[in-house]
Computed example of a mutant assay.
Amino acid sequence: MSWYPSVSARRVCAAVAAAASLTLMLGGCTSYDRHTAEEARNSAKKGAALAPDAVDCARTRCIALTFDAGPSEYTPRLLDTLKKEKVHATFFLLGANHVVKHPDLVRRIADEGHEVANHTWSHKILTDLDADGVREELTRTQEAVEKITSHRPTLMRPPQGRTDDRVSEVSRELGLAQIMWSATAKDYSTNDSALIEKRILDQAEGDGIILLHDIYEGTVPAVPGIIEKLKKRGFTFVTVPELLAPGVAEPGKVYKP
């Protein structure tokens, strides 16, 4: 889930960024080296090629739809919508009380062609933890997802988008790339589906990554309108790995549009 600082906090962040000439992350004062989808595509290994039926996001106006902190009781309706619209999304799953509570939904997400990713075990702020704490938060969800799907995630999203060198190092060790976002509806603060839809439509851009949560009542009803209107604007929906292809997200790196 994302976090937005107060005016005073933003001023502090800006001052730090100016002094250090670092890229400031959307969620706070922690900074990191940012990598884009375009950079990932351009850095693809020599000879790497797209699958015959894959979308070429270097030539197509692509956008990735992502959902954090589920699955929940709202996820089946979301999956029905995505299937109807023939859209694949990336799900950053939360381990405690979500993955372990809804194994059938985790299995369905994977079986229906969506990307299954890691959003930690208990949504602790990783930058507040030591290396062992970060490792535990990520590893427990890795193992839980792998037990259900036989697939170990390669992507993760740090809670509130907070990362640092320690988090990046542990992520690299565990084979996880970090994925941020470019558009958010702040759907944790409202159940107004029309407002959620409008906020996403206002921020949508090519090579963008949309952040939503399939744990809030107002979010899933907003998804059909988001998909319909963005398709009309010429967007093609892809998973995060498809957005980067033929490049591959490198463990430990942070990707942000």
Rank of each mutant, 00 (worst) to 15 (best):
M25I: 07
R135G: 10
P224D: 14
E137V: 05
P246L: 11
K101Y: 03
D207H: 09
F92R: 01
A40S: 11
G252E: 12
V7W: 04
A204Q: 06
T190P: 02
Q178A: 10
Y4I: 15
S72H: 02
P224S: 12
V12C: 06
A69G: 14
P257E: 12
S182W: 02
I227T: 07
D33Q: 11
D202R: 02
F237S: 02
S122H: 03
S6P: 04
K84N: 11
T127G: 10
G208V: 10
V100C: 08
N118Y: 03
L65S: 07
S168D: 11
A222M: 05
R162T: 10
I125M: 09
A37N: 05
S193A: 14
I215P: 05
A9C: 13
P241F: 00
Y255A: 13
R172C: 14
A40Y: 09
A177P: 06
R41P: 15
H102G: 12
G28Q: 07
A40H: 09
T149A: 11
K147N: 10
V100W: 03
E39L: 03
G225P: 08
S122V: 03
V99H: 04
S43Y: 08
F237Q: 01
A18K: 05
E169F: 13
E73Y: 02
T90R: 00
L138D: 10
D128A: 13
M180E: 14
D128L: 11
V12H: 03
V223F: 01
K256D: 15
R41N: 09
P76W: 04
P241E: 05
A96G: 13
R140Q: 13
L78E: 08
M156R: 01
T239Y: 02
E250W: 00
S122D: 15
K229D: 15
P246T: 08
V220F: 06
L26V: 12
M180K: 00
L129R: 00
T81M: 05
G252N: 10
K232A: 15
I109F: 03
G27H: 01
V12A: 12
A69E: 15
A48K: 05
W181S: 08
A183D: 13
V134P: 04
F235K: 01
A18H: 08
E242M: 04
G27K: 01
T236V: 14
A185C: 05
D164T: 04
E136F: 07
T23P: 05
R77I: 11
E217G: 06
L26G: 12
S31M: 08
P241I: 00
P76M: 09
Q160V: 06
R61H: 11
L93T: 03
P5N: 09
Y4V: 15
A110P: 01
P251L: 09
M180C: 09
L65N: 07
H123C: 07
H35F: 07
E173F: 06
R77A: 15
A64E: 05
L105P: 08
M25H: 07
L65G: 11
F92T: 01
L129F: 01
V87M: 05
A17L: 08
R107E: 10
R61I: 06
T141F: 03
A37K: 01
R59M: 06
